[in-house]
Amino acid sequence: MREIGQEIRLARQRSNIKATRACEEFGWSASKLSKIEKGFRRPSSWDVARLLGLCSVGPETEGTLRALVEEFDAGYFVRRHGNRLPEALTVVAMHEAMATAVTTYAPVVVPSLAQSADYARALLNDELEAGADVDAAVESRMARRNRLLYGVTAPCVVVYLGEMALSGVVGSAAVMHDQLTALAMMVSRGVITLRIIPRSASLSRLGQGGSQLEFRRFPSVVYAEIDCLTVVYDDVDLVNRWRTKESRLDEVALTASDSLDLLLYWVDHYGRLSTSVAPPAPAAAGSDDARS
């Protein structure tokens, strides 16, 4: 319902139609429209048809809204992002704007919410289809990162990051140095809490990456990206399965202090790489080598 409400609000605002006018046109109370747009009340097909007519929306928006209204509420749904950024999906952007807490697990690469511009560009050059405007995509990703992490109502953000994301080079050593330096600054300033999953941990038990968002007035939502699709769910049983995964992550992850130490090692590693004096990688805390 929240996605429907957000699409209705955006359509109304794009048409420069005030809420008071819409309510007068339909004989609705201000409370009814507010609840619909905030996702507290599901509109009927007739409600949506009247709103579409008033807003004179294009066929794409009309098709999207009609599909959302007719969609069966199974506790989960799939959204195709294709050549768009996954985080640009209405359902993702809307929930991030309302979240009070975000927990992200990224086993292989730094998650998009904490990427630097050059790191994001290196990834998007490979991910986006030929002809896509990579610079615009990078700018959009940076705006979303700044809005989410540095906004007035920024949520509490915890990132569980696989050590592979530190050791695997994206772009170049210089790109990695800048990215990990930026990540270390986020941690040092308290913008995010970082917990690194050491190489000694069994990632197979942890499954794929994803994010859980928590809210003051709504149930938690989890979303995960799968190639060109994003899966979103708020079903209680499915969310509880994510929380079980989160408990496993907490068990195997390094402490916040040890995670920062390991991150700073890799910052130094990529800084030294250009002069070929990088020291051997240390054994992560909790690994067999560290205990021997």
Rank of each mutant, 00 (worst) to 15 (best):
M1R: 09
M1L: 07
G5T: 13
G5A: 12
G5V: 11
E7V: 15
A11R: 05
R12H: 07
Q13F: 04
S15C: 11
N16M: 06
I17P: 03
I17F: 08
A19K: 12
C23D: 05
C23V: 15
E24G: 06
E24W: 00
W28S: 05
S31C: 02
L33S: 09
L33T: 09
S34M: 10
E37L: 13
G39T: 10
D47L: 04
V48Q: 09
R50M: 14
R50V: 00
L51N: 09
G53Y: 09
C55E: 08
S56D: 14
S56R: 15
G58K: 09
T61D: 15
E62L: 00
R66C: 07
R66D: 08
A67F: 02
A67M: 10
D73I: 00
A74W: 00
G75Q: 11
R79D: 14
G82R: 14
L85Q: 12
A97V: 06
A99N: 11
P107R: 08
Q115K: 06
S116T: 15
S116Q: 12
R121P: 02
L123E: 09
L128V: 09
L128S: 12
E129I: 11
A136E: 15
R145T: 02
R145V: 03
L148S: 12
Y150T: 06
T153E: 14
A154H: 07
V157R: 02
V158C: 04
A165R: 04
L166G: 03
V170N: 06
G171K: 12
A174R: 10
V175T: 15
Q179E: 13
Q179T: 09
L180Q: 01
L180F: 01
L180A: 00
A182H: 04
L183T: 08
R189Y: 06
R189C: 05
T193G: 11
R195E: 01
I197Q: 01
I197M: 01
S200A: 14
A201E: 01
A201M: 04
S202A: 12
Q208R: 06
G209E: 10
G210L: 01
S211G: 05
V221R: 02
I226Q: 09
C228M: 07
T230V: 15
Y233L: 04
Y233C: 05
V236Q: 13
R241I: 01
R243F: 02
E246V: 04
A253Y: 04
A256K: 12
S257N: 13
S259H: 01
L263I: 13
L264G: 00
Y265K: 07
D268F: 00
H269C: 00
L273R: 03
S274L: 14
T275G: 01
V277I: 14
P279R: 10
P282Q: 07
A283M: 05
D289W: 13
D289Y: 11
